[in-house]
Design a protein around this nucleic acid. Structure first.
Length: 918
DNA sequence: AACCCTACTTAGCATTTACGAA
DNA sequence: TTCGTAAATGCTAAGTAGGGTT
């Protein structure tokens, strides 16, 4: 082994600290084995738990890496300005970080660390995670267990697919035939296996489109055809409900377009259209009206001022505007109390001040603003806040009128004409100026995001189209006619120099089509996955370090759905990582084969997981961490995402790391859905729960989190109290039966009348008091309201006596409860109560209880898992359509309006066909 | 290979709207 | 009907990924 030092190596992947040897000798491998002979490895793939972390690993580095430009400074420093006091006291903050923060970030809309959720400084996370881990464990473990079986089926399936492919080579015919019937010009270019044709149309825009070649199921319209067979298939275009589906071709003139009549638009069903010759060309004609700019700044009224050192100051309007950016967001303590945010803001604020002649006091004397802490934005905040409240409380009619006016103003920008079709624009508004809110500990958070001027905006539009007029007195930066691009307008933002694009919305044909292709590509991976897996298993032992690293990375991406992990500019962005950019301190190894990942991923969301892995993977990671590597060094020092993706694309055209996430998410979902009990007779709520459970597993796989709101705990309690209340009511109702017919006790058995174990006497007393109180409140409120009305109508208000009289009802209720408690009997309520009626109410109550309990469980499970992201981006929507068909539940229960639009292609192409498979 | 440029998807939180219980 | 909450939508930041250039 010997030559362990790095200098004798070949060119480095990244020159950042320590590098591993290019080659691995057999002795190197053996050495790793020896050191870890004890203990039998657990079977791979089991997630052990989602547990705590201790600080150690994370803040060490500091000293070590001055090496390159990778200032890792922030790692040790952490964001928690607000919390650093606790840091030192080490007090048992114990228990839920969320809660803590809540209290700490007092009243603010979002706790500081929330967002950093994972990202908390280690000192806090240690305490905080403790109890969470318990929660998460079962889910994680379950998921991991299923994973093994899921993978097995994947391999089986892949083999089957390949076998099938061998037998029947030309497969995609179905569609082509069908289509050329319908569509004279359909001349779909056939293409052979991978790669071959790629280069041809590739260069165009660098967009190299993958073109899913899912043979057997390429034509999305296939099923539809089947349903409405042969001939012309001009059946009614499917209406909103997925129930009936049929036509493959849209009916002329019969527009789905609701409303404004003026223009009947025919829906474009791209999935029925012939395949494009060259899909790097996105359009041939494109018309639009440009973008909407932010409203100009409206100066504050004279009496609202920024204060400095206790005194109001005069500002140039430009400086005032910047001050309002800060003032308006005072409620977001999370930002406003962040020292980096303050620092960046203050720097920029001082710049405008300097540029605009500084601040003056009431007498026109210069005020030198040099300390942030002396600035007081409260008056500004209060002004905006009041305005906001006022706006909300305006009469409905007024609000409506305003909305109508706004809509009318925006209407021209809402849609564009894309190849002659009307398509919705996604974000036609240029982002307004403000303060940049970077996530995690972004070094530039708080920086002023400047107003975008037309001079910065480039317009992309068809050659023949009329170029939209820029606002009066302004010009566009440029106008171009690039039909390989899908954007209508673009500008560069000043904070990070990022490009911002105006594009079509998710329900437009281009986006839908792109979405479809994404999922087809992922489905296509099914055919290659077993070979890929076999190969990387083999390469885990390669003696070429680069290959071994690549294989290991592939393993992680495949099994744990890690993101690719492109390199980032560490000086100017928050420090987050993905697979290829994992660092020494993000991976902790526990013999014999447990790996603990702890790092901040996209959006600074924490990824914390303990996994058991193949022994070889464990050994490799150990090797990649071998001294002299230390904190701050890359684990995969001979691997970049580019290399990885290049390798992947050798298996399948267009295959990249991110496809694995789509594939694994959709595949997992499909497996889970298939396992669902088919037993019918479920209520919609129960079906939905099943669906959401599957969805949740996928979300967990993808580590999609959300912050549990300050309110969660309270809401949960409330909900549970409501459930208990209903249970109590149920019990009372049952007792009434005995009152009506004493024989019931015998008939139903004593058990029937037992009190739910959830309820105890103390609680009941409390609850009764609560009910009485509620009743009082209700009565009082009603009384007051009536009086108000009388006053308004110039009548004499009702006397207090009347209120007292009315409150007697509540008193009676109280007395009744007392009596019940004493006698252990409940008098039947209502007029002419019968056992039957009572039984009915019991049934009703039981139903309500069940619904609420489901809801409660669902919500608790979802507490910090965000289902939406995977539903929107990762789970093939056709799976959901099939689920709904199979379980006979409306698609609208699962997809919101926007999602139904976005996934229109899926809904219409699958219809009620339950045989579609991912 | 490293860098920059470009363009597109994915992501969580904020704000608005819809909806269900009272 | 009204109110308060949950769901839907809006917003924009933060990723991935590919190409070109040096």
């Amino acid at each position: 082994m010997s030559s362990a030092s790095s200098d004798d190596d070949m060119p480095l992947a990244r020159s950042n600290g320590h590098i591993s040897n290019a080659k691995i000798s057999a002795a190197d491998d053996r050495a790793l084995d020896k050191s870890a002979s004890r203990a039998r490895p657990a079977p791979p793939g089991l997630s052990i738990r989602n547990g705590p972390v201790d600080d150690d690993s994370m803040d060490v580095d500091a000293a070590t890496n001055g090496t390159k430009r990778k200032s890792r400074s922030s790692i040790g420093k952490a964001v928690n300005y607000k919390d650093d006091s606790d840091d030192s006291d080490g007090a048992p903050l114990a228990k839920r970080q969320k809660a803590n923060q809540k209290t700490e970030a007092d009243s603010d809309d979002e706790p500081i660390s929330k967002k950093k959720n994972g990202k908390l400084p280690p000192s806090i996370s240690r305490t905080s995670v403790v109890d969470e881990s318990d929660d998460d464990e079962p889910l994680g473990t379950k998921l991991a267990q299923r994973k093994a079986s899921i993978e097995k089926s994947a391999a089986k399936e892949a083999k089957a697919l390949q076998a099938k492919a061998k037998k029947a080579t030309p497969k995609k015919a179905i569609k082509d035939e069908d289509e050329s019937d319908d569509e004279p010009l359909a001349k779909p270019k056939k293409r052979l296996s991978n790669g071959a044709s790629a280069s041809a149309n590739k260069k165009a825009n660098g967009v190299k489109k993958e073109e899913p070649e899912s043979d057997s199921d390429a034509p999305i319209a296939k099923k539809a055809k089947k349903a409405a067979p042969a001939t012309k298939a001009k059946a009614a275009p499917a209406k909103k409900t997925p129930a009936k589906r049929g036509s493959a071709t849209p009916k002329k003139g019969k527009s789905e377009e609701p409303g404004d009549g003026e223009e009947e638009e025919e829906e474009y069903r791209w999935w029925d259209a012939p395949k494009k010759e060259d899909d790097s060309i996105k359009w041939t004609t494109l018309e639009h009206n440009g973008v909407i700019f932010a409203d100009p700044y409206k100066p504050l009224p004279k009496n609202v001022k920024l204060y400095y050192d206790g005194k109001p100051v005069e500002l140039h309007v430009e400086a005032e505007e910047v001050a309002t950016y800060f003032g308006a967001m005072l409620n977001s303590t999370h930002n406003v109390e962040n020292p980096v945010f303050q620092k960046n803001f203050f720097r920029d604020f001082k710049d405008v001040l300097k540029k605009t002649g500084g601040a003056k006091d009431q007498n026109g004397n210069k005020v030198d603003i040099k300390e942030f802490s002396k600035l007081d934005f409260k008056p500004i905040f209060e002004y905006y806040d009041a305005e906001r409240v006022a706006k909300k409380n305006r009469p409905a009619a007024e609000r409506k009128a305003e909305k109508a006016e706004r809509d009318a103003r925006e209407a021209p920008y809402m849609y564009c004409r894309w190849d002659g079709r009307k398509e919705k624009v996604g974000n036609m508004k240029v982002e307004p100026p403000g303060l940049f809110r970077g996530r995690g500990d972004h070094p530039k958070t708080g920086t002023v995001k400047k107003r975008v001027m037309p001079e910065q905006v480039t317009i992309n539009i068809g050659k023949e189209a009329k170029v939209p007029d820029p606002p009066a007195g302004h010009k566009w930066k440029a106008v171009q006619h690039d039909n390989k691009a899908t954007w209508l307008a673009m500008w560069q933002e000043n904070v990070n120099g990022n490009y911002k694009y105006v594009m079509l919305s998710a329900n437009s044909s281009t986006k839908q089509e792109a979405d479809f292709k994404k999922f087809e590509k992922a489905r296509n991976l099914k055919k290659h996955i077993d070979r890929i897996r076999k190969d990387y298993q083999r390469d885990l032992k390669s003696d070429v370090m680069a290959d071994r690293q690549r294989a290991t990375a592939m393993y992680l991406i495949d099994k744990f759905a890690l993101r690719a992990g492109n390199e980032k500019d560490t000086d100017n962005e928050a420090e987050t990582v993905g697979c290829c950019s994992l660092k020494y301190e993000h991976v902790t190894l526990k013999e014999p084969n447990t790996v603990i990942f702890d790092f901040l991923g996209k959006d600074s969301i924490r990824f914390y997981n303990e996994f058991t892995v193949d022994r070889q993977v464990f050994k490799n990671l150990k090797m990649f961490k071998k001294p002299p590597k230390e904190d701050g060094d890359d684990i995969f020092d001979r691997l970049t995402t580019t290399q990885l993706n290049k390798h992947l694309s050798s298996y399948m055209e267009g295959l990249t790391a991110k496809v694995f996430r789509t594939y694994n998410a959709s595949y997992t979902m499909s497996q889970l859905l298939q396992k669902l009990p088919t037993d019918k007779k479920m209520t919609d709520a129960e079906k939905l729960k099943l669906y959401n459970d599957c969805n949740r597993e996928v979300a967990i796989l993808c580590n999609h989190k959300r912050t549990v709101g300050a309110a969660h705990e309270t809401q949960m309690e409330k909900l549970n109290d409501r459930i208990k209340g209903l249970k109590y009511q149920k019990w009372r109702t049952k007792m009434m039966m005995i009152d009506v017919d004493p024989k019931m006790k015998k008939k139903k058995g004593a058990e029937y009348f037992e009190l739910d174990p959830d309820l105890d006497e103390t609680w009941i007393h409390e609850h009764q008091a609560f009910l009485v109180e509620e009743e009082r409140k209700k009565i009082t409120k009603k009384f007051e309201k009536e009086n108000e009305k009388r006053v308004a109508e110039k009548e004499r208000p009702l006397p207090e006596k009347e209120l007292k009289e009315r409150l007697k009802v509540a008193n009676e209720l109280e007395a009744k409860f007392k009596k019940e408690n004493k006698s252990k009997k409940v008098e039947a309520e209502g007029k002419s109560p019968t056992v039957e009626k009572l039984e009915n109410s019991v049934k009703k109550l039981e139903e309500r209880i069940q619904t609420l309990q489901l809801q409660s469980a669902d919500r608790e499970g979802n507490k910090e898992v965000a289902l939406g992201t995977s539903k929107i981006n990762y789970i093939d929507p056709r799976l959901s359509v099939v689920f709904c068909a199979k379980f006979n539940i409306g698609i609208e229960k699962v997809f919101s309006k926007t999602l139904r639009d976005k996934f229109k292609w899926a809904i219409e192409s699958v219809g009620d066909d339950t045989t579609w498979e991912f």
